[in-house]
Design a binder for these strands. Structure first.
Length: 298
DNA sequence: CTGGTCTCCTGATCGC
DNA sequence: TGCGATCAGGAGACCA
């Protein structure tokens, strides 16, 4: 479901509700949503790895799920959101990383406030003001991961590319230089640039006037400059609109975004290009439906 | 390395 | 109204 603007909207709406609050109880309703340290995110490996199937995937302790700890920071890299909290006697903060996958939601409810649809809630936390933080994920492509320290988080995130919200032409140049594959494929790869998904790659490529099939390594400096600027501006616009709500995205307060109304290409195959009026083309690239304008993008 | 294909899972929508 | 096919905002594994 969520790409960078949606995850950042969740982070921002969650921050004032969580910071300074202490977790009084943590409940894990499905332990297979918890990824073991060192294992990758992704439903496939979680289901298929013999070591994980049917077994407890990690040492689940109250500490690892933040019980007794006070929220200190919420940080994001790409589409991953990390909740950091410190227990009274602990030297280091404990970390819970939330990966929302396609259908994941992370939201907060005031004391007594009902959850509209309580199905598929896999984990939840009670806070010291009586409010609740809930992780809901119908398709279960999302996951939670616990880490013992901020250093472990830094180490894990070292494998991600630069964050898309602040990407610079130089960063893009160095990360795409060796990529002989197509632009769409490269930009979807979180180790190349972190935060883009199917919607915002297509939107950014349209804004940069670049075809998704262009070789990533063949971009010239002016292409890279345009692309970096397009990525940042699309993400900022989306963030200002609270993200894109296609089906079930809501922020921590339960509010949907409106950026889907401004999409130039995503979901608009066959419809007129907002720039030249000719019908938009679509084709499956990198296993995802990709939409672009043959006339405006080169 | 690269792309293509398959997989995990649930639910909405569409054509018959 | 029911039913099967298809599609969906993600991402890892495997194969040629």
């Amino acid at each position: 479901m969520p790409e960078l603007p949606e995850v950042e909207s969740i982070r921002r709406s969650l921050e004032p509700r969580l910071l300074g609050r202490t977790v009084t109880a943590a409940t894990l309703l499905r332990r297979d949503v918890l990824v073991a340290p060192g294992d990758p995110f992704g439903g496939f490996s979680r289901q298929r790895s013999p070591a994980l199937r049917g077994a407890t995937p990690a040492r689940i302790t109250p500490q690892s799920l933040l019980k007794g700890a006070r929220f200190s920071r919420l940080v994001r890299r790409g589409k991953q959101l990390a909740l950091l909290a410190r227990a009274p006697d602990a030297a280091a903060e404990t970390v819970v990383i939330v990966q929302l996958g396609m259908s994941g939601q992370l939201f907060h409810r005031a004391p007594g406030q009902r959850v509209a649809d309580p199905s598929h809630i896999h984990a939840w936390w009670r806070l010291d003001d009586g409010s609740r933080l809930l992780f809901r994920d119908p398709r279960r492509f999302g996951a939670l991961r616990t880490l013992g320290s901020p250093e472990a988080l830094t180490a894990l995130w070292a494998s991600l590319g630069p964050d898309a919200l602040t990407i610079t032409p130089d960063e893009l140049a160095s990360t795409l230089r060796a990529a002989r594959r197509g632009l769409k494929t490269a930009l979807m790869d979180q180790t190349v640039i972190a935060g883009l998904g199917n919607i915002y790659v297509d939107e950014a490529l349209f804004r940069a006037h670049l075809r998704p099939t262009r070789r990533a390594s063949a971009l010239r400096p002016d292409d890279l400059a345009r692309l970096a600027a397009a990525i940042r501006s699309v993400l900022h616009d989306a963030l200002a609109a609270g993200g894109s709500t296609l089906r079930d995205y809501v922020d921590a307060a339960g509010d949907p975004g409106t950026y889907q109304l401004a999409h130039a290409v995503y979901g608009r195959s066959g419809q007129p290009c907002r720039s030249c009026g000719r019908p938009l083309t679509s084709r499956v690239i990198a296993q995802r439906t990709t939409v672009w304008c043959r006339d405006c993008q080169h």
